[in-house]
Design a protein around this nucleic acid. Structure first.
Lengths: 229, 229
DNA sequence: CGCATAGTTCGACCTTTATCGAAGCATCAG
DNA sequence: CTGATGCTTCGATAAAGGTCGAACTATGCG
């Protein structure tokens, strides 16, 4: 035995309900304090503290201290991608207790995935970018074409700043609800930020839901040539 | 809380060491009996039986009865992909106990992932197919171009048979050691089968390792224009 | 039919670990 | 300094779940 890496270890980390709750919360991309996470996960602060430090040791979370607060966030996009993957399997194959609540439809339509947009609209946006030749896949790397760069600049995204960062510019991220790719990477993040700046979208507090304003939805669909369903 | 699917449930399933061992074994793509899995995982048959039925309930495995044997295999490619994802994180970030054994180099070079080829050579093969325009990415779907179809037919792969199957023809699968895509789907499977038929490769028993013969390696590199390192 | 082999179910241990109360640091405000 | 807040550490408790022996069912072989 003992071929390949120790998958039981990280799976156990995700496998505890309290920890899974916290990780799901952190998929919003925001960094949260120990007490916030404790509250949301329904455990005491001591317990949460213990869990969070385990997740940190396991490399799933990255803590940052600010004053007397300690903020935890997902360690990197790989973690976010993995979690989306698990969600995909859990949703498709998964537990029968899957009751589709009222929030569910909104969640499928548009939500935050770590720091970029996910959901039906996000995959359509990704398809549009591919179809128009703004993005191409080369090997496993997603490349922004010249046309794509022009498109992004037109949308007031400062590509030079993004390029100088260490993080990859474009990445695919598999969407658990759609089972298709959407755009991740610093460009994916930049798009979401612009949407917020333009007030096309607003994040719904305490959830991963991203709600489009009436005019925002229209502008978004126009920009990416997405027809109304 | 309780947004999105129950990720703790499937993670717990993978999180037990004995179950993780079995799943890793099944990544070879072969279906194995209860006793074989028990043996390899280092538990008794009763225990293994219990674990396997849990994995089945959780949708990770698909059992098939043949005579007085019961064969278990991974339920589908999604499961295989997820496991590769977990391996990627566990390897990169993962446990310090990560000691690179002698097998390790071979495993990184070429191994079986569910039913297709993975490892360094597999990602290079994938890159080659993309670079030559035999495959293109459209949205999240990997499309075999006309040129690609001709290429496959030249290699004596019966595309018509594959097309008629329900399973998708081409899929990407993220390679944990390379962190790049390799080819999955029924076409990926067909390629591996052809390599075996031509005796280019042989599977090493009891492992996921795929070893290339001297001439097989040469032919493979020539076919996909891969330079010797 | 009897016997052997493959797998399941049941029940009893026993290790693992999540949980929280209480006490201990660290940081900030005054 | 004192008090208040955020978080961590320690220790005891309790619940969950993996493990295996033993008994049971199912299939195949003569």
């Amino acid at each position: 035995m003992r071929e390949g890496p120790d998958i039981a270890y990280v799976s156990t980390l995700i496998g505890d309900p309290a920890r899974a709750n916290m990780l799901t919360l952190l998929m919003s991309g925001k960094a949260l304090t120990v007490s916030e996470l404790a509250e949301e996960a329904g455990v005491t602060i001591q317990t949460a503290s213990s869990h969070l430090s385990k997740l940190h040791t396991g490399g799933l979370l990255r803590p940052r201290k600010q004053g007397r607060h300690k903020y935890y966030a997902l360690a990197n996009e790989d973690v976010a991608r993995l979690l989306e993957g698990v969600m995909g399997l859990a949703a498709g194959v998964g537990h029968l207790r899957r009751r589709t609540g009222p929030k569910d439809a909104q969640l499928r339509q548009a939500r935050v995935c770590y720091n970029h947009l996910a959901g039906a609209l996000a995959t359509q946006m990704f398809d549009s970018l591919m179809a128009k030749g703004h993005l191409v896949l080369k090997g496993d790397d997603l490349i922004l074409t010249d046309a794509g760069a022009a498109f992004a600049r037109d949308f007031d995204i400062e590509l030079d700043v993004l390029h100088s960062a260490r993080a990859p510019l474009c990445r695919e991220c598999l969407d658990w609800s759609e089972r298709r790719s959407h755009l991740a990477g610093s460009l994916g993040r930049a798009f979401l930020i612009r949407f917020e700046e333009l007030s096309w979208v607003k994040r719904v507090e305490q959830t991963r839901i991203v709600s489009f304003s009436r005019s925002g939805d229209e502008a978004f669909r126009k920009l990416f040539s997405i027809e109304r369903p």
